[in-house]
């Protein structure tokens, strides 16, 4: 089956990012396809490379980047939600005249069209959030 995944919550406070990661890992292991992971609402906070969790905790952001590298996963951060919450790549930094960017490896910033297109091209949308 071909999935598109939507992640609506940031890391650590809520189990959303963990459940989404575990679902995707399991789906890929079973031979399913994950067309795209779309991060919306506070879910865009999964894409900052500046998180520094304690050594004995899981690193949610690194985990996403590693999964993306291993499976060529398309991790898309919603641009409108990201601008509100301070998640920027270098291009957005320059465009918005900010002094830093923080997008983690394996993520890209794009629009909501990526969610709708993904929904059209997939068999199923699975939403993680509360």
């Amino acid at each position: 089956m071909k999935f598109i995944i939507q992640v609506n919550k940031g890391p650590y406070q809520h189990q959303t990012a963990d459940s989404a990661y575990q679902f995707i890992s399991a789906a890929l292991a079973k031979g399913h396809e994950v067309l795209r992971v779309f991060f919306y609402h506070d879910g865009v906070n999964n894409g900052t490379r500046l998180t520094a969790p304690p050594q004995d905790d899981r690193n949610v952001v690194h985990r996403w980047s590693a999964l993306a590298a291993e499976h060529d996963l398309d991790l898309v951060i919603c641009v409108a939600a990201a601008q509100r919450r301070g998640i920027l790549d270098e291009r957005e930094m320059n465009r918005l005249d900010k002094d830093a960017h923080n997008l983690a490896p394996g993520f890209r910033i794009s629009g909501l069209g990526q969610l709708i297109e993904g929904v059209v091209l997939s068999d199923r949308l699975v939403v993680f959030g509360d």
């Binding site: 909501l112 709708i116 059209v120």
Partner: peptide
């Protein structure tokens, strides 16, 4: 919460994609 406001954007994009 921001859900209602950010849902409107998704509806409008869905409309733009003729869904």
């Amino acid at each position: 919460t921001s859900y209602a406001l950010e849902a409107i954007d998704v509806v409008l994009i869905g409309s733009a994609f003729d869904q």
